[in-house]
Design a protein around this nucleic acid. Sequence first.
DNA 1: TTGATTTATTGGAACGTTCCATTTATAGCG
DNA 2: CGCTATAAATGGAACGTTCCAATAAATCAA
Lengths: 347, 347
Amino acid sequence: MASRAKATILDIAREAGVSKSTVSLVLQGSGLIRPETATKVRKAIEDVGYVYNRGAANLRKAHSNVIGMVINDLTNPFFAELAVGMERVFQAAGVVPFIANTAENPVRQEEVLKSMMEQGVAGLIVSPARGTMPGAFRRIEAAGVPVVFAMRRLPESRIPAIAPDNRRGACLATEHLIRKGHRRLAFFGGSSDLVVYQERLGGFLEACEAFAIPVVDRTIVEGETSRKGGMACLETALAMPEPPTAALCFNDAVAFGVILALRKRGLEAGADFAVVGFDDVAEAEHYSPGLTSVAVDTAGLGERAAHVMLKMIQSRTTRAEDHIGAVSLVVRESSGPDRSSQMGDAA
Amino acid sequence: MASRAKATILDIAREAGVSKSTVSLVLQGSGLIRPETATKVRKAIEDVGYVYNRGAANLRKAHSNVIGMVINDLTNPFFAELAVGMERVFQAAGVVPFIANTAENPVRQEEVLKSMMEQGVAGLIVSPARGTMPGAFRRIEAAGVPVVFAMRRLPESRIPAIAPDNRRGACLATEHLIRKGHRRLAFFGGSSDLVVYQERLGGFLEACEAFAIPVVDRTIVEGETSRKGGMACLETALAMPEPPTAALCFNDAVAFGVILALRKRGLEAGADFAVVGFDDVAEAEHYSPGLTSVAVDTAGLGERAAHVMLKMIQSRTTRAEDHIGAVSLVVRESSGPDRSSQMGDAA
DNA sequence: TTGATTTATTGGAACGTTCCATTTATAGCG
DNA sequence: CGCTATAAATGGAACGTTCCAATAAATCAA
């Protein structure tokens, strides 16, 4: 069936009885060639089972149409959603994003970035792994490849970042808890090596300050940003002499963990302890109880990041403005009764 | 700071005072060059901020070290886990997998596959989008690029597939429901254009047959493989004159939807209606109630697929054996009380 | 010393494209 | 009919690697 060695532009030229240049022109859809010739060439392409060699082309053209997306945790649905938002934009622009996962591992991240650079990507959208060193992107910047950070940023970096308004979101959520009447508040999960953590914690503290919550009534428990981490945080907090009655969680995964741990103790989120999450993943709505969470419009941020990237590529610059996405609080049951309700649930 | 035009092997050669061939040798870690020379060259590489151009290299070498992973729905945590399993294996082999999402869209899939082929991938691991045409992979096979299907297969294709034992899993789950005393059973979600659906439904029917469940007592409701689809399935089924008392769901997402819909009606999964899922995603364990589900060892299948792929590349063949992964039923609360408590199926 | 052997290094010809500068064919105009 | 203007097609020189065959330098055997 198929030829052993892979067909090249020259094979097509021979097959169609034209020159390689003509084939090349057809391939890039130039209007310079006569329609009949183009048809003839296209038929030949089909016949020989030709596969375009982008590597060879890039050798001359110098800018590819692939964009790399480097994500720190693909199993987190939050990041998958981000990816989906970006893809929507790129698809329309005829760009194929290649995704790679770093599994929150800076060493792996280095490998992945290297591989993408070698592949000649036109740009890189990155959600950096925790513990990324400040200089990790110096080489890439030096090579003139545009980079955009999504969701996370690095401490002192000039790379543009697209992220939600973490501080404001946390502030909003904390206010909500305070207005519900809570006076002993906790912030659960995350760790201070993440800029995002500092922003969210900052918002939490800002609201505490604004409502004059004394420092002793603010409990801050760092922990893994996972269900397990959330469970641990709750245990730690409840073991305290004056335990908090409400918690803002670093993200939804932590919040789910807290709800789970409450249930294990025979307590119910909402009724016995108020829980608020962050990110508003799809699951938050369907959880039981529904999780009050800060919605960050993940897919929208993905789209925005993709747009910024495209613009940077187009204007061949390596700099762009940060973009802070609007946030909103989605109130559900986990943060306490809407009225003074009872759920009809008797078995 | 960095040079405007990107550095090549020749720039390094000049910088280090050697020939380009020497630099090339150093780059591929050949033992032929004197250690001191190698060091000198490596320093030059560092100094000029050189980025290896794999496209150019592939022009001669003809086999790249990138493997494409084409996945039909990245937002499904199930597939993300699959991806993670593969990555583990590839990383050890020094291969970087590039992931792309087709969003269950055959047209998009075509674009993505084309792009990957153009990029010169060494192999492709694919979970084909629903509605993929039988001939969709003919060109790729003809080009001699090894392809492995993961989780899903195409109706009449010679491409090796790595998938769980769907039939047996469904059979196991159905038996479980029957032993619990259920006599009117449903199969919820999915649609018959998927081979996986046919296998799972087949297992369901096989168990029904074995336990002599009459055909009238088997309810089959096709539907979207999502929470929403699951909710719709339950509504349809409960509207019937003699509604089922238990359901095997096409996957966990459908099962979660069913549980949700039950709750909306004031019913509780487990107590009032038995629900079993398929895939045993991480969330199944943490759901409320815990979801009984068929565990398929997703990450293990990913690893297996990656191994098969590596072997195919190594032995430059495009054929391999199918691999059917073992499954097991994980019993939790959603399928009813552990003890043989009689459930009256009069609602 | 000479030649043979081993060890390091090097030029040059690919690889499959693109793109510029030409060439060739076609048409238009007086 | 010759001339120019336009349209269509073409050859050749890059692009950044690898790899073979060839060279140069160092070592050894006699």
